[in-house]
Design a protein around this nucleic acid. Structure first.
Ligand SMILES: [Zn+2]
Ligand SMILES: [Zn+2]
Ligand SMILES: [Zn+2]
Ligand SMILES: [Zn+2]
Lengths: 173, 173
DNA sequence: TTATTTATGTTATAGCGTAACAGGTCAAGA
DNA sequence: TCTTGACCTGTTACGCTATAACATAAATAA
């Protein structure tokens, strides 16, 4: 959850990374750069508030409420009213640069923007970290279950609450 | 979504049923009876407010907001304040007699109480109906994805938004 | 009965989210 | 150049969702 000096190894699976000690400033910076590239490619305008909102979400592998983001934006000289945060977050979600975690009434930066993906969120109830795991098989199973009753899935929210690797260890002790 | 006279056939899959015309008074009554049996078995006290809240949720295959349930309870002579509804609903969820649909900030009656199940919700964006499909395969895929990164899943919310069979037809027209 | 727990109801307040309007920026086209 | 229109940012004001804290009453246990 914070910066730990040496981390020379190649990037592991993003969900594994979220729960592991890693050079997060690099992790966040890299993700931000990819997000900027995606925005440019799509012709989406990543304006100062929007970019700053994304940076804020990228500070840690956890979800933040809109009002928490708003406070941070306000402290940085942006507007102080809820729509300022909600609009920036809405933009990020719309363009796949962030996700909404309904279980937490909160938002989290997307850890692999650009890649078309069916995210599954793993929320640790002990340390509040949130990881975005590869959900393609889960989504496939969901589509199958829905198709069996004639239902057409357009969007899905798949959110799991439990214990991350570190906190599972702690609980076992 | 409303009562249609004859329906002699045996019960199909509950999710299929939710989207089909059926004798809902029988469907709801039967589910309520099973819920009562489950509550008795667990030693859970299905008091008048709680029972009435469940009946209200059972009136249709859709989710209802807590305040909507509250209005109905108040009209029936129960308390008029939010905690009255939230507590009844919390009880029902705790004992597996109802589910919370986070995407809608709402609650829906469980259509097969007692059976230990991993529900998946199929929410029609056109007619607002909500079906509870069998989610065991989906849950299994989720557990696998989580286990791959060392995460232990305790609870999961799996909610799909899309079009039910009837509304898919309508949209195609 | 008396003590203990559980349930119901209240007031008050916190937290989440959006509608509607005003002013500002920027680029395309007259 | 000037105007038009699209889009972005900011505001006020409000509505919906949810819970904390407390008082009373009913049910169960001792
Ligand atoms: Zn990181
Ligand atoms: Zn944890
Ligand atoms: Zn029915
Ligand atoms: Zn429908």
């Amino acid at each position: 959850m914070q910066d730990i000096p040496p981390q020379p190894d190649p990037q592991p699976d993003p969900a594994t990374l979220a729960f592991a000690r890693h050079d997060h400033s690099h992790c966040a910076g890299d993700t931000l750069a990819r997000a900027e590239a995606v925005a440019a490619e799509r012709g989406a305008r990543l304006t100062p508030v929007r970019r700053r909102a994304l940076e804020i979400l990228l500070e840690a592998h956890r979800a933040m409420g809109a009002y928490e983001v708003l406070d941070r934006l306000a402290a940085d000289g942006f507007g102080h009213q809820p729509p300022v945060a909600y609009r920036a977050l809405e933009f990020l979600v719309e363009h796949g640069l962030a996700h909404r975690i309904r279980r937490l009434n909160a938002f989290a930066a997307c850890m692999h923007p650009g890649q078309d993906h069916a995210p599954v969120f793993l929320i640790c109830r002990a340390c509040d970290s949130v990881a975005e795991a590869a959900g393609e098989p889960v989504r496939a199973a969901l589509d199958t279950a829905a198709a069996a009753v004639g239902f057409t899935v357009e969007r899905a929210n798949i959110e799991a609450l439990g214990l991350c690797p570190a906190c599972t260890q702690g609980a076992a002790a």
